[in-house]
Structure formats: C-alpha cells, structure tokens
C-alpha cells in the first residue's frame, strides 16, 4: 500500500508519519504542498506541525493550498484520508470534517500520554483495533479542544462518527481524563462517508515499543486492512 504524506513548509511530524508507515512495511512518499496531484497514492496522511505557521488559525491557510484541492477530490472519490493533530485542524478548516479545534481549556500546550477509547470499530481507521482495547497514544497540541454546536454533535453520534474519546486507564470516559476540554471527550472523528478521519493524538509517535507504545500502529493497520479488502472486492 502506498501512503502520501503531505508536506507543508512547517509540517514537523511529516518524518514521523513516514517512519511509522514504513515500519509497517508500507510505501510512503512526501507530497509537497504546492503539488496539484497526489500521484498514485492509496491513502493520504496529513501530518502534525504548524503548516504555514498557523498565525490566523491552525490550518486556516493550509486548506487553500494546491495540494488540499487534490485531497478534496481524492476524498470525494472515496479515498482514505487521515489527519493527525494539525492535519485534523486542517480537515476541519477545509470542511472535510465537521466542527473546529479551539484553544485548550488550560490555555497551555499539552504534551503527554493519554488513553483513548475507540467508540466505533466499524470505520476504516478503527477496524483493526481489538474491542475493549484502550489505546495509549501521546498528544502534543495547544489547540485541540474539539468544538461543534449541539446539532452537529447529535449528528456525529447518530451516524457513529465519533471514533475516539479521551478516557482513563480503565476505559471510562471521564472529565478528569479530558486533556483539553473537548466536548464529549472527542479525540477523533470521521466524516459521514467514513473515509476521512482526524484525531488530535499522534499514532505516529506510538508505533514502536521503544518509544513506549505501539498502539498507534492499529490505526495505520486498520487503513491497510480496509484498503486490501476494497482492492480484493
């Protein structure tokens, strides 16, 4: 399987994503933000970082980049797109995912390991995650507080678009386990068509036991599993 890893001038997790995907034995290539095509990619990962410096709002400028027009078309055709951290922010700004990510309630940047409960196992990003397996994956963001209005939240629930929620070590979704004030402890969601997802935690930093956790691999593995099934069909 071939992953395209987008590269904005101030992406800083592009190498981490490439590394994590290649560890799983897949191919991965960078695609520069000025590119107008994704080549023959089977899936797209939008990595973390600060894209264009993120001075107005995180992801606000990136969504207008040439490569994002290509991602939009790719997503419209059903291609798998995963946005991590800044990538999640960009997808929300671009309208590919509902809602927005605002300043952490603490007003401070937060870098720490968190636990994630997988709230829906029937998405291309979660299908390889064992039921009841609590993921341990780090976060690193200053603006990761998920916000959407009530009707949007209700729709997310109705359509089972909430994929991951912050929880404690035992899997309970509690206020204390919420690192940034996200509504409903939302850590990651997908679109209604289920082919575009975003999450604030970094699976790319949790793909090796050497770094403390390999839980993040499950997310990339899910994508590969889904892609292989689609291709076989």
């Amino acid at each position: 399987m071939r992953f395209a890893i987008l590269q904005f001038p101030a992406s800083n997790c592009d190498q981490d994503c490439l590394h994590a995907v290649r560890l799983l034995g897949h191919q991965a290539d960078y695609v520069w933000h000025k590119a107008t095509s994704l080549g023959d990619a089977d899936a797209v990962v939008i990595p973390g970082g600060f894209s264009y410096g993120d001075y107005l709002r995180c992801g606000a400028i990136a969504r207008f980049s040439p490569v994002m027009q290509a991602v939009q078309r790719f997503a419209d055709e059903g291609g798998l797109v995963l946005g991590i951290c800044n990538g999640f922010q960009i997808l929300c700004e671009a309208g590919l995912l509902p809602g927005a990510l605002i300043r952490n309630r603490s007003l401070q940047f937060r870098c720490e390991q968190v636990f994630l409960k997988t709230a829906a196992h029937d998405a291309p990003f979660t299908e390889a995650i064992p039921p009841d397996h609590v993921l341990r994956i780090p976060i690193a963001h200053g603006e990761g507080c998920y916000f959407a209005d009530e009707p949007t939240l209700a729709a997310l629930e109705t359509h089972r678009q909430i994929l991951w929620q912050y929880c404690d070590a035992g899997g309970a979704v509690t206020e204390a386990a919420n690192p940034n004030g996200s509504l409903r402890n939302i850590a990651g969601i997908c679109n209604q068509a289920r082919n575009v997802a975003g999450l604030m935690p970094h699976p790319d930093r949790a793909s090796e036991t050497l770094l403390g956790s390999a839980d993040g691999r499950r997310i990339f593995e899910s994508m590969a599993q889904c892609w292989a099934r689609r291709r076989a069909a």
């Binding site: 605002i102 300043r103 952490n104 507080c145």
Partner: peptide, 13 residues
C-alpha cells in the same frame, strides 16, 4: 470574536 456558545478560556482567564 468567539461565538457566544463557544467556550472562551482566554476570556474567562
């Protein structure tokens, strides 16, 4: 400005 319904931790602080 942030919408009324949106939590504004900076404003609160």
């Amino acid at each position: 400005t942030p919408k009324r319904a949106v939590l504004d931790p900076q404003g609160k602080t």
